[in-house]
Design a protein around this nucleic acid. Sequence first.
DNA 1: TGAACTCACTGAACTAGTCCAGAGGATGGG
DNA 2: CCCATCCTCTGGACTAGTTCAGTGAGTTCA
Lengths: 238, 238
Amino acid sequence: MKRNADNPKMKDVLREQIFGRALLPLQKLPSERELSELFSTTRISVKDALSALETEGLIYREDRRGWFVSPPRVHYNPLSRCHFNQMINEQNRIAETKLINVSTIMAPSDYAKVLELKELTEIHVIERLRYIDGRVVLFVENCLISHFFPAIIAENLTQSLTQLYQDKYQFTTSRSRFDVIPAAAPAHVAKALNISAGQQVLKICRVNYNQQGQIIDCEFEYWRPDAVMISIDSIEHN
Amino acid sequence: MKRNADNPKMKDVLREQIFGRALLPLQKLPSERELSELFSTTRISVKDALSALETEGLIYREDRRGWFVSPPRVHYNPLSRCHFNQMINEQNRIAETKLINVSTIMAPSDYAKVLELKELTEIHVIERLRYIDGRVVLFVENCLISHFFPAIIAENLTQSLTQLYQDKYQFTTSRSRFDVIPAAAPAHVAKALNISAGQQVLKICRVNYNQQGQIIDCEFEYWRPDAVMISIDSIEHN
DNA sequence: TGAACTCACTGAACTAGTCCAGAGGATGGG
DNA sequence: CCCATCCTCTGGACTAGTTCAGTGAGTTCA
């Protein structure tokens, strides 16, 4: 590895600066062009090095804005139907939620399949964006089977849905099922998360059951892959 | 997106061929050079397109051998301390395990921390490779606290360790704790998995407890990200 | 027969540029 | 004071090549 001599150095230097906190979370790195001059190499090599650090979860990019240092990952347990904001607060981080879109539609076949519905059943689709410490990290799509949730549209959908399920409909989740899949961001998700289409995300598909064992809703989560760590302890589910 | 006109086409064509089963799992794609001629573009663009499909989990690369179509993902539940081979067989796939290395060392500080040990405690480190349908998909490193497992080194370590724990030491796992982290492959893992260093993998760190609630071992798994899907159902843990 | 060697082919890593499109700050007119 | 417009900076996407190093099949030779 002779010709490599420069570039690993660049990766190593940046890595060191990040671990040594010379570069702080959320801080912007110099532009690709500047880096290529600093390390006297081409932009393509710089890009490769930055992508590698991105894969390690040390830095992230925002489309046409630049590269930034990733804050530490949050721990997330998809089994505990917990309140997002509370969970994040417990980790001494600041959470926000923005409602993007709410629509009521006939379940398309892929959703119908997940929810085990006959087609032509009405569902509410709620799209929300979640922020941690001011950074977009999560795009969530909730699909609620309409007849379980009359008049939910009128509610404040920025709060915890779990809370709403309990307070307004007396639903407690008796069972959750979920899949975690390393995937590529679909276009609309990429746009919302401020990443480029096709970039890697961690996709979580969850199906929730009420106390009668009926499926009441499902959820598709798309996480920035450097922002999260799935963390599960079997002792909690007894 | 004018100039993009060719390349998405290339991605789309390949995607279509894969979904349409014109290209079958494990089948080799044409070389990057051939593809760049076929689609009259440069190798860098071809590489970008292939990387994008790789992120989607549709294809994978083997270092200096070529690009191949990914077989379907297997479902994996890290909570059920199940036998790897059995789990894979239940999904109508063929599993193999190869022992790479066994060593007995003083726990280095990072391992000691995970295992909640004082330093200078002896551990066995067992490194194994797992194959599905003949393809390497998983690198596993098991760290056993030595004094719990006298003479385990002499056993056949290609079989299920869970089984061995039960049969030889009467350990049943009372509790498991694990983290799932999208990460970059460390060099030795990359080499074993036949991927290039720094490529993306799904890392799973698990800690196991015996029926007395003592930590007996931990495990570091590195999965090829296109090969697996974490799949958990809360109803199974009651 | 089998081990060592050769060599074409593969992706990996690189150089040196161009052009495009979105983000966002500065500017200036109403 | 507000809003539109411009202009600069960013990463994204590309062209057109070169060199390097591991893979693996085929060949040679003891």
